[in-house]
Amino acid sequence: MMNKPFKDFSQTEEELRTLIGFPSELVESKTITYLDHHCEEYISKSPFLVITSSDSSGKGDVSPRGDMPGFVKVINENYLVIPERPGNKRIDTMRNILANPNVGLLFMIPGLGETLRVNGKAYLVKDVDLLEQMSVRGRAPLLGIGVEIEECYIHCAKAFKRSSLWEPSSWADKETLPSAAKIIFDHAGLPGSSTESIEERLKEGYSKRLY
């Protein structure tokens, strides 16, 4: 077994609390167990979220979801639905939900540092009438991820401020960014493929198979 590079660990909550301390009364009190009008408004303006899930053994995964603002449908204060658009067909999130329904959502609005965190139980939804309401370009999603709300709260902007994520002046030049095609080529190692052929596949998918 490979030796871990870490020498000192925190292994109890008591030790963590000694190091970190306790949340303020405001932080303790801000969690609610339903979607109020503030949460619904946030979701209606959010074009992007990440969803965390884990399988029956606890192995975790995080996956992005994005579309036009308001793509996530709020059914009522207790339920929302995320349309499942075409992807890479790994279905990691959906397989995890079948084994373990607990999920976490992090909604983001570009330019806004505060995020909305929603935790709950997920279901793979096939209701045709509901999915038709989330059609784009005449195409309804085949499935949706329904979430029963257990808790939600606004998360502060410190991480976004530290990272300057929404500040264009902090963004690297596109020419210096990692190439997805090169990474996939090296990782997959498929005979007969090339960085150029993978780049073309990516471009085709982005232009023709978003919905």
Rank of each mutant, 00 (worst) to 15 (best):
N3D: 07
K4W: 00
K4M: 05
P5E: 08
F6Y: 14
K7I: 07
D8F: 08
D8C: 04
F9G: 02
F9Q: 04
S10K: 07
Q11G: 09
Q11P: 00
T12I: 00
E13H: 03
E14N: 09
E15F: 02
L16I: 09
L16D: 09
R17K: 14
T18K: 15
T18Q: 14
L19H: 09
L19D: 01
L19I: 15
I20N: 08
I20F: 07
G21S: 11
F22V: 13
F22Y: 13
F22I: 06
F22R: 13
P23M: 07
P23S: 08
P23H: 06
S24M: 02
L26N: 13
E28I: 11
E28Y: 00
E28R: 12
K30H: 10
K30V: 13
T31G: 10
T31M: 13
I32S: 05
I32E: 01
I32F: 01
D36Y: 04
H38E: 14
E41M: 03
E41S: 06
Y42S: 00
I43Y: 00
I43K: 01
S44R: 03
S44M: 02
K45R: 15
K45M: 13
S46V: 01
S46R: 01
P47C: 11
F48Q: 03
F48M: 15
F48W: 07
L49V: 03
L49Q: 06
V50I: 15
I51H: 03
T52K: 02
S53R: 11
S54N: 13
S54I: 02
S56D: 13
S56G: 09
S57A: 13
G58E: 10
G58V: 11
K59Q: 14
K59V: 13
G60F: 11
G60A: 14
G60H: 03
D61R: 12
V62R: 02
S63K: 08
S63W: 11
S63M: 07
R65V: 06
G66P: 07
D67R: 06
D67C: 06
D67Q: 09
P69A: 09
P69N: 11
F71W: 08
V72N: 04
V72H: 08
K73F: 03
K73N: 02
K73W: 01
V74A: 02
V74C: 08
V74Y: 04
I75F: 01
E77Q: 12
N78P: 01
N78A: 05
Y79P: 00
L80V: 08
L80F: 15
L80N: 01
V81S: 01
V81I: 15
I82Q: 12
P83E: 08
P83K: 12
E84H: 13
E84T: 08
R85F: 15
P86H: 08
G87W: 03
G87R: 04
G87T: 05
I91V: 14
I91F: 15
D92F: 10
D92T: 14
D92S: 09
D92R: 07
T93K: 03
T93Q: 05
T93Y: 07
R95N: 14
R95F: 14
N96R: 09
N96Y: 07
L98T: 04
L98N: 04
L98S: 05
L98M: 15
A99M: 14
N100V: 00
P101S: 12
P101W: 04
